[in-house]
Design a binder for these strands. Structure first.
Lengths: 210, 210, 210, 210
DNA sequence: TATGAATGAGTATTCATTCAT
DNA sequence: CATGAATGAATACTCATTCAT
């Protein structure tokens, strides 16, 4: 987890801090950002006092998680660019796989508090800038490749990504894969690939969503 | 609002009931379904006692709003089918305009409580069935028209719609319009229309989202 | 039920009043005097408005029930004196059978409110005086008969009676019959009769009491 | 107070816990078990949060008081057996003095909730068993002494005791002493002792009872 | 420093009583 | 007059945050 500020902490304190952030990340993702602080502390194996010593209030914790998460996301984006053969593939990989992306979007776009938070924090801002730069680079690259339609920008991608990823466990994996596929077809410079899975009727879909 | 059960209520009680549902709908949409009951009462111009007389607990209120809303959505779908020249246009109109759709999706798909609720309530179930039937009809119609790709079903539309509409005031109108346009291009049998507005860079997009 | 004040009421109003008192008596006995007014109204088949028109508040209702009940108890005492062959038998009958006694004791002795109430109400006071006079008469008579020990007074009987009757559905009928029998033996001028039923062990007793 | 579970608590928390139980015991005795939790907290000198941290709801508090109280009662019974010269005297002492007995009877016999509670709790069950064993022992001992009539069991004693003790501040001390004396006469193998105090008339008794 | 106890403001819900229909 | 709707004060319980140990 976060490496920016923990340098001065003793090893155990550091372990606690990282553990809290890891737990909070999971809890925010699973249960939402309103979940009781005490359970976060308990699941992290610390007392509430320790939690509050590290993070003076919920907002601070959200900020820390957001920062940590933006870091992870930046790394993911960097790796995607490095490892995928094309910008388009990097884009697809990001939209397909990113758990960190989902949380980042929730924390930095959805929650106004966390958004302001991420705004104030220099480390977070640095990560964010890196991510945005990478995203712009990916978009321009994919357009240069002729894979991505020319009339979209990184902002459009961000919006689609946030829509796609914004909801906890919405629908089945297949449903989300199909939705992504449809979006990618909409984004493509030329007409699309066949959809994964099979088309579901309205009723099946609703039954499956519960 | 709801016409199903209020028939026996005195005129003033009926007005209160409708007002409470209207306010709750708005509040649930704006602030989420956890918002204090007292403010719902206050904004509806009644005491908390009145609110609780009609709706024994928060769940009951959510159920009532869900039912009312599914009714409104069914009506909207019916009108869209009746008034639009083609099934494709009906589909676009639904995805474009539906505030009721957004709330319905939140209440009946997202919240497990409300989902179960809508399941138990016969009136709600009836509305839901009508909506799903209409959606299936629209999808088949649009495919017959050659406008909608053949490999999607109503379930895919529901998923896209719920993604598109699931978040309160996410992004600007233009951003959402562009996202919808991209999705529609992904859904089209043949390649798409030009996007509305202009492409934004990653940074602009994030600045604009707050 | 009460005949003292209802003379001016229309027949239906009178029926309502009597019904309310009958229901309240039962509810106070079964559920205690704190039970919701609305249920008393409902079980009496009237609206809460009607209940409150007749009895301005809970206290007034308790007073009315107490008055009504003291009347019934006075009648019961009168009958016991008239029908039983001896004063001792009258005493036993009162302690054995009186449901009205139980409620009266609850309402007029237990609850301070109702006690004051019974104090202020002339009709109630009249009944109470009659009951107390009858009880004194019974005690003196039973002592003259040589059945009741000479060193007790009506007050002792009242205390024993209130102890015996004060609790809702405490224990089984047999348990209470045995307790009464023991008390009567303690009250008798000469040593006692065999107890009814059989002796229970401590464990059985507690199991049975729940 | 309770020694069974508090061992792991910090000294101050332990003090609070004991204080809460002591206050609750008194309040339940004086005002009944429905009394506002907030006042119990206030009289114990703690915030409501502290009360609820230790006892998640009213039922848990009642259970805890019942357990604590059964422990005290068991100790009292043990002491009575140890210190009194005869089983009969031990019995009299228990019936005469036991404040804890009164509360225990209220909490474990009268209230269905507390009764179930005491049933589930192993510590409470242990105390209860000890008490019942002691009571059986006392009864058999007093019968062997020729002091107690042979046709009663510990169950009868429990019933009489619960009747005698079930009501808060019922009557004067003298009234209750006389009632107990009458009961004891009824329980004696041979005819009874003179009653303490003097006989009261019906009116005096009722005036005094409020 | 870590802990978890204490605090009390915040929120849901109930119910006695009043009042419009 | 009867009705039952409306009111709001009272009360149980939760949880973010502070503080003693």
């Amino acid at each position: 987890m976060s490496t920016e500020q923990g340098m001065r902490l003793r090893a155990d304190a550091r372990r606690n801090r990282d553990q809290i952030i890891a737990v909070a990340k999971q809890v925010f993702l699973d249960e939402g950002t309103e979940h009781p602080m005490e359970e976060i502390a308990r699941r992290a194996g610390v007392g509430t006092g320790t939690l509050y010593r590290r993070f003076p209030d919920r907002d601070a914790l959200m900020r820390a998680v957001a920062r940590d998460n933006l870091g992870a996301l930046a790394a993911e984006a960097r790796t995607a660019v490095a490892e995928q053969p094309s910008a388009w593939d990097a884009l697809v990989r990001l939209l397909e796989h990113s758990r960190d992306l989902r949380l980042s979007l929730r924390l930095s776009l959805l929650s106004p508090a966390a958004c302001r938070a991420a705004h104030d924090d220099p480390a977070a801002a640095r990560h964010r800038d890196e991510i945005l730069d990478l995203l712009d680079e990916i978009v321009r690259g994919a357009q240069a490749e002729g894979a991505l339609r020319a009339d979209v920008g990184a902002g459009d991608i961000a919006v689609l990504g946030s829509l796609l990823l914004s909801r906890g466990e919405f629908g089945t994996d297949e449903m989300r894969a199909r939705a992504l596929s449809i979006m990618l077809d909409g984004l493509r410079a030329s007409p699309g690939a066949p959809l994964p899975g099979r088309a579901t009727g309205a009723r099946e879909a609703v039954e499956g969503l519960g």
